[in-house]
């Protein structure tokens, strides 16, 4: 199974732990990544300003993977939605594709429309499969409780994703977490947006949105949040201390990228998964796991 790994902007700069754990887990499960250095921003941040620029940025990125005859694996949910959306629009609308290619010709690129884009979590869920993951587990995470955070763009707009999961009642991440032996904690406002997209527009609203979810989860006895988008992680992990001091509260709730969770179950050491880079330290989880190891 081969994919071009699309990192986007946030991952290589601010979520290298996510990148590292994704690469480890992929390798362990037989997913081969090709890195394309010329990939740029997916185009998502520009969509509010000019949809045409976004479309060209996305089409150019897609054309680079097409050249190598590879499907794209994304790990940021915003990148997933923009690349999927533009790919779908251009595949379905020949006239639009022609217009886009006229512009792309100026930078000597051409979009063809013969590859697919998939989020890494969806690849694990659909292509590797829950049963295969279960049978690859070397160290069960039994006894550890995770609150899944799906984020928005992994599932929505659902019309671009062919309804592979229900945006109103998603289960794919729950199943992926359970496949490691860990327990899934249900909580109110499970689908609530992290607020990341408006952090630069209105920090108060954005942080209040993140706080709301941290409040909900912390009352449910979760050991950690598990998520699949680097910007959601910025909101809950990087900004957790800020939220704590601004709202005079305390959570100390670790936030793990799902590949870090799966990586632990596959037997990788915490450091191999970049866990020392998570802002809120997952010490208790690691201790629980090591205790389990010495007992067994």
């Amino acid at each position: 199974m081969k994919y071009a790994l699309f990192l986007g902007c946030t991952v290589p700069a601010r979520a290298r732990n996510y990148e590292l754990s994704t690469r480890r887990v992929a390798q362990a499960l037989g997913i081969e990544f090709t890195d394309i250095m010329d990939f740029s921003c997916c185009g998502f941040p520009v969509k509010s300003v000019d949809v045409k620029t976004t479309m060209l940025l996305a089409a150019r990125n897609l054309s680079l993977a097409e050249e190598k005859n590879l499907n794209i694996c994304t790990i940021c949910s915003a990148c997933t939605s923009i690349l999927t959306e533009v790919n779908k629009e251009l595949k379905e609308n020949g006239e639009l594709k022609e217009k886009v290619n006229e512009k792309l010709a100026k930078i000597k690129r051409e979009y063809g429309g013969d590859i697919e884009v998939k989020h890494f979590a969806r690849i694990l869920y659909e292509d590797i499969g829950i049963e295969q993951i279960k049978s690859s587990v070397k160290k069960s995470l039994e006894g550890i409780k995770f609150a899944p955070h799906y984020g928005c763009h992994y599932l929505k707009p659902s019309e671009i994703y062919g309804n592979f999961d229900d945006p109103e009642d998603p289960t794919s991440l729950d199943e992926l977490i359970r496949a490691t032996g860990a327990e899934v904690i249900d909580y109110g406002d499970k689908k609530l947006c992290c607020g990341g997209a408006i952090l630069g527009v209105d920090e108060d609203i954005s942080l209040t949105m993140a706080k709301k979810k941290l409040d909900r989860i912390s009352t449910r006895g979760a050991d950690a949040i598990s998520l699949i988008c680097p910007f959601c992680s910025i909101m809950y992990d990087d900004n957790q201390r800020k939220i704590e001091s601004q709202f005079e509260t305390s959570y100390n709730l670790p936030v793990l990228h799902y590949p870090q969770v799966l990586g632990l179950a596959l037997g990788f050491e915490p450091k191999e998964l970049g866990l020392q880079m998570n802002r809120v330290k997952a010490t208790e989880i690691i201790n629980k796991l090591q205790k389990g190891k010495t007992e067994s």
Binding site: M37, D38, F39, S40, I107
Partner: peptide, 23 residues
């Protein structure tokens, strides 16, 4: 140092797209 491959520090083609659309 983390064993991750390098990323491009510039992307002239992407920059050119901003000129093409005039944004």
């Amino acid at each position: 140092r983390m064993g991750l491959p390098p990323v491009a520090t510039k992307c002239p083609e992407a920059s050119e797209i901003f000129n093409i659309t005039g944004i």
